[in-house]
Design a protein around this nucleic acid. Sequence first.
DNA 1: GACCAGGCACATC
DNA 2: GATGTGCATGGT
Length: 223
Amino acid sequence: MTTTDKLTQLYDTLFAHFGPQHWWPGQTRFEIIIGAILTQNTNWSNVEKAITHLEASNVLSPAGLRDMEPDRLAQLIRPAGYLRVKAKRIGHFLEWLFAGYGGDLDAVAQLHTHSLREELLSLNGIGPETADSILLYAFDRPLFVVDTYTARVATRHGLIEPPFDYHQLQDLFQSNLPQDVGLFNEYHALIVATGKDFCKPTAKCEACPLNGLPHTLDVPSEC
DNA sequence: GACCAGGCACATC
DNA sequence: GATGTGCATGGT
């Protein structure tokens, strides 16, 4: 069985079980970007609370957040955790957005994928996963988003052998699947759904829909 | 009360 | 270069 076959089978199995995920759970480009920063190492339900606060305060826009006191921003996003860290990270992004693009995300969208990725990665607080989430979900660029769930699923199903880094795991998916924004969108969302429900750190994988695939390894007692 | 959650930067060895 | 640690809140 080729890697492409395995990845396709994995996707088909997850899609059959979970159905379409309709990601990203955010309306606007800007909201997706802010959500991508807020969800760093954080449960999405906590992020939703923070975003609700921003919406209720009518500041969920580039200018709205730029004009806000850092302390006040930190308080509004408090439920998402790491409030001071994330307030700073949002500030760094806004500083870049206004300094280079007048606060206009449509202008940012004119950049080529590689240039935009490099610019995002140069910002303090935006690493590979956050950058790729923004590129895929806010700017429709065909990049596969790798997160802890991806690493866990791929390892447990023998798709990659540790140790590996972010790029190696990303390359596994990108080199063996069609470069399709819709596919990458859904695939990552499905992996997250699996992670939330089944593929836990010390997990009980028994009921996981991926059990029974030819490339499923023995369930590890500890991962 | 411990563990986990859609990371990242920085210090230290 | 690899490994460890701080950052913070809320659900299970």
